[in-house]
Amino acid sequence: MYAQMVKSEATTDDPEKLAAFQARIDAGEKIEPKDWMPVGYRKTLIRQIGQHAHSEIVGQLPEGNWITRAPTLERKAILLAKVQDEAGHGLYLYCAAETLGVSRDELTEMLLDGRMKYSSIFNYPTLNWADMGAVGWLVDGAAILNQVPLQRTSFGPYSRAMIRVCKEESFHARQGFDAIRKMAEGTPAQKKMAQDAVNRLWFPALMMFGPSDADSVHSTQSMAWKIKMNTNDELRQKFVDQTVPQIEFLGLDLPDPGIKWNEERGSYDYSDPDWAEFFDVIKGNGPCNVDRLAARNKAWKDGQWVRDGLLAHARKKAARKVAAE
C-alpha cells in the first residue's frame, strides 16, 4: 500500500515485557509514545509511517503536474484542494513518526537519499487529464481500503493521524470518479482517453497493496502488533470487488480479460499484476523514479534559504525580546 513491503524488525527485548506489551495490544489498548515498546515495534513503525508520509508528499507530484492545465477553473480549484490535502496528510504522518524519536529532517533526508521508500504507484507518469480522474478514483480508492482499517492500529498517534486522513480521503476518491465519469460520458475521444487512463493505471493500482500473501514475508509480526490490519491479498480482493461494478457503471473496461465473477467465492477472480515489474519499480527502475526523487531533492535544496531565513528571524526576535526585558 502506501507503505509496501515494510520489513518487521526483530525484537530482542525482555520476554516478560514483550508478553505484557502483546497483552495490551490484544486487549485493544492504544500504545502511546512514552509507553514502553519493543525496539522492533518502534523501528517497524518509523519505517512504515515514514514510508506512508513520503508517499503522501511524493504523491503530490503526479497531480501537481496538472493543476495549471486543469480544463476548468472549478476542476483546478478541486485539484488544488486535493493536492493541498496530500501535503497535510504527509504532515500528520511525519508528526506521528516523530513521536517515536526520529526527527523530521532525518526522515526527509532518508527519503532524499533513497534509504526510505514511497509507494510504487507514484513512479508512474500522469500523461493527460484523464489520469487525474483515474488517480483520484483508483489510487485514492485503493489507499482508502488500506487506511480505514489502520484507524484501529495499535499506535495512538498513527491511529489518530489515520482518522484525520480518512475524513478527507473520500473527497479525493469522489472527485476522481466525478472527473473520469465526465469523460466516460463525454465525446468518443474523451471516452477513449478515460479508457486509456484506466488501462495504464489498473495494474499499478493493484500493485499498491504489495506482493501476494505467499511472498509477503513481513506480515505476521506486524499483524500481531496491529500495525498491519489485513493481508495484502484481502485488501486487493476488496478493491477488485468494489471497482468492477463502478467500471461497469462508467461503461469502461478493465484491462484484464481474467476478471470474472466467482460464485463459489462470492468475489471476482482477477489476474495478478506483473510482479517482476513491481519489484523493478521498487528497486528504482520505474518510469519516474529518477524524476520524483530529483524533484524532491530540488525542492528541499531550493527551500533551504527560506527555512534558514525564517529561523534566523525568529531567533533575532527572541533575542531582542530577552534584551528588552
Binding site: 504532515l91 500528520y92 508528526c95 523530521r104 489518530r160 527555512r307 525564517l310 528571524h313
Partner: peptide, 11 residues
C-alpha cells in the same frame, strides 16, 4: 489536534 514545525509562534 496534532503538532507541526514552525520557526516561531506566528508561523
Amino acid at each position: 489536534v496534532g503538532s507541526l514545525h514552525a520557526p516561531d509562534a506566528e508561523m
